[in-house]
């Protein structure tokens, strides 16, 4: 029973983190059609949530697994979770390289939208050029 739980935790890390990362990075590199700025922000926020969850789980799952396996003295899973920290580091390095290759930050990015450009409602007088109504 203990072994099954630790095994599920390990598989959750092994497959769950790459799953979230691939899905998140596909969204991040896509050029979606978004009618309004609010829709673009919401799309970006969902992508951020997926990527942040993947990065947090990438460290949290192996660390928790290693701790639990040590506590219940399970050598098999302690061995696997110990080595999985190397995988954690490799995933962080890979995500860091992807982040360096991108022109905009990987997390906290809002895609372009098709909404109307914000209207300029402030008149700035230019000396020698245009004047402003009422002043």
């Amino acid at each position: 029973m203990k072994r099954l739980g630790l095994g599920l935790l390990f598989l959750g890390w092994l497959y769950g983190v790459p799953f979230l990362l691939i899905a998140g990075l596909i969204r991040r590199t896509s050029s979606p059609y978004l009618a309004t700025h609010a829709a673009a922000r919401s799309f970006g926020a969902t992508t951020d949530t997926i990527l942040v969850t993947a990065l947090v789980l990438n460290l949290a799952l192996p660390a928790a697994g290693l701790l639990l396996a040590r506590l219940v003295r399970d050598r098999f899973w302690a061995y696997h979770f110990g080595w999985s920290l190397l995988g954690t580091a490799l995933i962080f390095v890979a995500v860091g390289m992807a982040g360096n290759a991108a022109t905009a930050p990987l997390i906290g990015w809002t895609p372009a939208d098709q909404g109307p450009a914000p209207q300029v409602d402030q008149c700035i007088p230019i000396s020698g050029g245009r004047g402003c109504p009422g002043g």
Binding site: Y15, P18, F19, L20, L21, I22, A23, G24, L25, I26, R27, S30, P32, Y33, L34, A39, F43, T46
Partner: peptide
Amino acid sequence: TVIAAALLGTSGIP
């Protein structure tokens, strides 16, 4: 995993 993630990632793009 990779096929499912690619399908999920592309399905969410309008």
